[in-house]
């Protein structure tokens, strides 16, 4: 019987230890890196497997407890999909028929309003973001995307570089301070001015005016284009020059330069 080759054993042990270490360290970091969205995605998948009736699992919000359900306003990843084949978006059909619908517009405008303090405020981001780099924003918002009914609007001010300067995630960092959430502090009576909805028409059939400021909204197609929100979509996306027919408001766009000189008088509001 030969003596076992010690050096081979030693090597094997070292390899085993190395594998063990690599796994545990990377596992640790994977754990550290797990963000809310990943956790939520994982939970969603789990539930998907548990649920015999898979048609249900698509539209019913997957929330663990009842109390949480009432509070959740965030369902960005509710229909989480990782099958890339299903994520392909069809090319926009510029000639598809669109029927303007007051009710749908109403819904769309109210939906927009939930993410803005007032009309013209930068919308908050309804999903977690990379806290340090804005580069990832552009992956979806650079050209805009529509994936399974969720819309990532095309950024309407592409010359801007620092996305998170104005757009902050509504969810905050993935770490939470339990029992001390600052929500109580944030009770606020600010009532923002909301979009008036429709522009005005000079007469039936005349092109409506633009009812909102166009600053930072220079790309009309990001909301009104074929990838936009139902209710706001234009019926004629194939036309290229929007302001040819739709007039913006000089007041809202701060182009009333005679107003820039404020009359040298005391303010009208009195302090009494």
């Amino acid at each position: 019987m030969s003596v076992p080759d010690f050096s081979t054993h030693k090597k094997a042990i070292w390899i085993a230890i190395a594998i063990l270490l690599t796994t545990s360290v990377s596992g640790f970091f994977m754990g550290l890196r797990q963000t809310n969205s990943e956790a939520r995605a994982a939970a969603a998948e789990e539930e998907h497997h548990d649920n015999a009736d898979s048609t249900l699992s698509h539209d019913v919000p997957r929330i663990v407890d009842y109390r949480g359900l009432a509070k959740t306003n965030y369902k960005a990843n509710a229909s989480w999909e990782n099958n890339l084949g299903k994520l392909k978006q069809p090319a926009a059909d510029l000639y598809a028929e669109i029927f303007p619908d007051d009710a749908a517009r109403d819904v769309a405008i109210r939906e927009r309003a939930t993410r803005r303090a007032y009309d013209g405020a930068p919308p908050v981001v309804p999903h977690p973001v990379d806290q340090i780099s804005p580069a990832n924003c552009m992956a979806c918002h650079g050209e805009g995307a529509q994936i399974k009914g969720r819309i990532a609007s095309k950024m309407s001010h592409p010359f801007m570089q620092n996305c998170t300067q104005c757009h902050v995630p509504v969810t905050g960092p993935e770490i939470k301070l339990r029992g001390q959430a600052g929500e109580a502090l944030a009770l606020n009576d600010f009532i923002g001015f909301m979009s008036p909805g429709k522009g005005t028409r000079a007469y039936e059939g005349a092109p409506p005016t633009i009812p909102h400021p166009t600053s930072m909204r220079s790309d009309c197609m990001s909301c009104h284009g074929p990838n936009g929100v139902a209710g706001l979509k234009t019926s004629h996306p194939y036309r290229q020059s929007c302001t040819q027919c739709h007039a913006p408001s000089a007041e809202l766009d701060q182009r009333l330069f005679e107003h820039s000189v404020f009359p040298p008088k005391a303010p009208e509001v009195s302090g009494k």
């Binding site: 369902k75 619908d101 749908a104 819904v107 769309a108 929100v229 209710g231």
Partner: peptide, 9 residues
Amino acid sequence: LNDNTVARS
């Protein structure tokens, strides 16, 4: 309500 605008209408 869910956020499917068509269903909402």
